[in-house]
């Protein structure tokens, strides 16, 4: 009675199982698995000593710190403002609400290079926003955080919004009738329900930011040790035909992204357990 992987369990009259699963698996193997396995294959060609030497080079380590730091801060900013925006879009009415709601998807739809040059023009020292500040924004880590905030915003808004929409007001009513004020109701009743969605939004925004390239390269300034993100460093190594270098750094970035998704899934699972009654 043992069933092997990717074998149909129950008989159904519907046709096309073998064709659709066959095509799906073949396509994913050729397009995703084979190319990604090249990363591991090429890394294994390196000696352990060389691998460590490449990935612990001070310029590479500086790029990890910058990439993780700016991605984390941008995701935190998005959690804060994204949750407020989702709340306002679901609960309040104001002129232009529909338009604003639609615009939230802009970072999904706008090519990253276009976002990159537009944000750079705005935040450059002579730009509309840049010239309002006494310090530099573009070509510093602050500029990187701004680009990553732009890219990550829809992830948080679009995960929190549906949860708020489907939220029944009954528990809020119960809380209010038991004498809780609005703030207490929010903290004790509404917020716990939002935590899983907020965590998912955070994870998606964070992991997207780690690999982001197009919107960042224009605004970052790309100074080694200071404003050089890891994806750009991979690109630089490639342009110098340093394939082992590019591959070793890439595998660290890839594994980090996977680890973050894994860790956040575990936290999510624990949070679900804690708050599900």
């Amino acid at each position: 009675m043992t069933t092997t992987f990717f074998h149909k369990k129950r008989l159904t009259v519907l046709p096309g199982f073998k064709l659709s699963i066959g095509f799906t698996l073949l396509y994913l193997s050729i397009l995703i698995l084979l190319p990604l396995s090249m990363l591991f294959w090429n890394t294994m060609q390196l000696s352990w000593h060389d691998f460590i030497k490449i990935i612990s080079d001070s310029r590479v380590v500086a790029s990890y710190k910058l990439t993780f730091g700016t991605s984390f801060l941008a995701a935190i900013i998005n959690v804060f403002f994204g949750t407020i925006i989702a709340w306002v879009l679901v609960r309040y009415d104001f002129v232009g609400k529909k338009l604003m709601d639609g615009l939230v998807d802009l970072p999904f739809a706008l090519p990253t290079a276009v976002a990159g040059i537009a944000l750079t023009a705005l935040y450059a020292p002579n730009g509309w926003i840049g010239n309002l500040f006494p310090f530099k924004i573009a070509f510093t880590p602050i500029g990187i955080i701004i680009a990553l905030t732009f890219i990550g915003l829809p992830f948080v808004v679009r995960t929190v919004q549906p949860v708020l929409q489907n939220f029944s007001t009954e528990s809020e009513e119960a809380s209010a009738s038991l004498g809780a004020n609005r703030w207490k109701t929010f903290i004790k009743v509404i917020f716990p329900e939002l935590i899983p969605a907020i965590l998912t939004g955070f994870t998606l925004a964070f992991s997207r930011a780690l690999g982001e390239y197009g919107s960042v390269v224009f605004i970052a300034g790309n100074m080694p040790m200071k404003t050089e993100i890891t994806p750009l460093l991979i690109m630089t190594k490639l342009e110098q035909y340093d394939y082992p270098g590019a591959t070793a750094i890439a595998i660290v970035l890839l594994i980090s992204s996977f680890m973050i998704l894994l860790i956040m899934n575990i936290i999510q699972w624990l949070a679900n357990r804690k708050y599900s009654v």
Binding site: F6, H7, T12, T24, M235
Partner: peptide
């Protein structure tokens, strides 16, 4: 439309490119 083992694995695999940097 069908039940088979490894379905979750397959869904994760389809989502994998979202976690990969475009440069990679």
């Amino acid at each position: 439309k069908f039940n088979f083992r490894g379905k979750n694995l397959l869904t994760t695999l389809i989502d994998l490119p979202f976690a990969v940097s475009p440069v990679i």
